[in-house]
Write a protein that binds this DNA or RNA. Structure first.
Length: 469
RNA sequence: GCCCCCAUCGUCUAGAGGCCUAGGACACCACCCUUUCAAGGUGGCGGCACGGGUUCGAAUCCCGUUGGGGGUGCCA
């Protein structure tokens, strides 16, 4: 009987959750979904100096935002690597007892010195036959056997490493604590992991870890190393230099569905001529063997385009709900009391086709929820530059005082004034728009004017006229 | 330096020897629509890194060159 596949995602909580990590998590999740297997989440929190519980929560939040939820039957964990320290040490002792590892008392400086003198890089196996026992300051190193190690990779095929190029790597630090290479394998073994899908930066670790698996008496898992995500300089995305925090994108108003879809088009593509597809289609079609082998540029512009697409695809109701966090509460640029949900609901269809990020929404409607709009000076100056600007605006204002207050009627008024001065509506409305909204661009004008009401609009026009003189 | 991986429009990709005059998407440009800005529609720009093979035939297979990337920690 073949075992159900057990995939795993093993991030370390050392900072904001990375988009590259999100993609790796998605791969593992989809694979678990496809196969009826498990997605095991393991937090690798063994680097005390860089760990912080807040990051662990961030990982959990981000995953569930992406639909990778602990309540799902495919989800297992989270497990914490730090809780398994005893098992790691036990495994290390076993390797030592078997003769697959040995202790070494050389300091990093001494190793460097030897390396320099011999002209060969890395550790030279100095303590291999010195029969040292454990002791403070002594590290335990794996005795890399002669020969070669072949890694079967689901995306790259067969990759062969000459063991002579792999130094006797450290298993236990001088203080007795296990390093990643060991802890990672021991946890995979004890958690019955069958498939390791991770970023390409781990490919050089694969032969080492495979040797540990074997030495521990286990069949290595199936490996898959997916290409890394890079920035415009084609360097691996880094927390220091690049905008990589999933949380940040979420706060800007990137939709989870858009993020998932976009991430999945990096290094892979669904069938057909459309990249924007339901997650179900991706889940059905994704296949490791068809993942590209080269790094992919994380293009924020394209992400935004995907997001705009997803925003437009929402029903108006969904869109309104999605906007709420940016309209009420701390993120809103106006006081909660002055926000009018009914007014926004009227405007919603008009702004829906005009935003790429949800955070762009407030600035399109803020003029509706303030006493007077914030005037953009450059826009104002430009709109009132023509000699006809003030005069026509006065005519419009006077007509607005008595005309029917509907979008069509208001439009007819402005058109009529324009006709008198041989000006097109497009030009005519510029001063009016700046007077009412404070800006030169925005959603269609006459609907919000109606929403604002006659009194408020006349007040704004007068204020603008006054500012002009 | 050494080890490993990779190479199709600017970017993300489709392409599994003839379906390729290389398809789509983002970006960009033009036009249409239009109440500014968007959205939408139509069209355009733009690519198989190079050199050798193999083959009747190569973007696809092989070798080399060049170029990129990853790794090279008592980080993960």
């Amino acid at each position: 009987m073949t075992q159900r596949p057990r995939y795993r995602f093993a991030p370390s909580p050392t900072g904001f959750f990375h988009v590259g990590g999100a993609r790796t998590a998605l791969y593992n999740w989809i694979l678990a979904l496809q196969t009826g297997g498990k997605f095991v989440l393991r937090i690798e929190d063994t680097d005390d100096s860089r760990n912080n519980p807040q990051w662990t929560q961030g990982i959990l939040d981000a995953l569930s935002w992406l639909g990778i939820d602990p309540s799902d039957s495919h989800f297992e964990g989270p497990f914490f690597q730090s809780a398994n320290a005893a098992l790691h040490v036990e495994a290390a002792e076993k390797l030592f007892a078997q003769g697959d590892a040995y202790y070494c008392d050389l300091t990093s400086e001494e190793i460097q010195k030897r390396s320099k003198e011999s002209g060969k890089p890395g550790y030279d196996g100095f303590s291999r036959d010195r029969n040292l026992g454990p002791g403070s300051g002594r590290v335990l190193r794996f005795k890399v056997p002669a020969g070669s190690t072949t890694v079967q990779d689901e995306v790259r095929g067969t990759v062969e490493f000459d063991n002579a190029t792999i130094e006797d790597f450290v298993l236990l630090r001088g203080n007795g604590s296990p390093v990643f290479l060991l802890a990672n394998v021991v946890d995979d073994v004890t958690q019955d992991i069958t498939h390791v899908v991770r970023a390409e930066e781990h490919l050089p670790n694969a032969p080492k870890q495979q040797m540990i698996w074997r030495a521990l008496g286990h069949q290595p898992p199936s490996w898959a190393h997916v290409p890394v995500l890079v920035n415009e300089q084609r360097k691996k995305l880094s927390k220091r230099r690049d905008k990589v925090a999933v949380e940040q994108y979420r706060e800007e108003g990137i939709l989870a569905a858009a993020m998932k879809n976009y991430l999945m088009t990096l290094g892979w593509a669904p069938t057909g001529d459309t990249e924007i597809v339901p997650f179900e289609k991706i889940t059905a079609e994704f296949d490791l063997s068809s993942v590209n082998h080269s790094p992919a540029f994380f293009d924020i512009v394209k992400l935004h385009s995907f997001n705009a697409d997803y925003i437009r695809a929402m029903s108006v109701g969904e869109f309104i709900d999605a906007c709420l966090p940016w309209l009420t509460g701390a993120k809103a640029p106006w006081s909660t009391a002055s926000f009018d949900a009914k007014v926004f609901a009227e405007m919603a269809p008009l702004v829906q086709t005009r935003v790429q990020l949800l955070q762009d929404v407030p600035s399109m409607v803020d003029f509706l929820f303030c006493d007077l709009p914030t005037i953009d000076d450059a826009a104002f100056t430009k709109a009132f530059a023509p000699e006809w600007a003030s005069a026509t605006l006065i005519e419009i204002r006077d007509a607005f005082k008595t005309c029917e207050f509907t979008p069509d009627a208001l439009k007819a008024v402005v058109e009529a004034v324009g006709e008198k001065h041989s000006l097109k509506l497009g030009k005519m409305q510029a001063p009016l728009r700046v007077a009412v909204t404070g800006r030169s661009v925005g959603p269609p004008l006459f609907e919000p004017i109606v929403l604002l009401g006659r009194e408020a609009v006349l007040k704004r026009i007068d204020a603008a006229l006054k500012k002009q003189t």
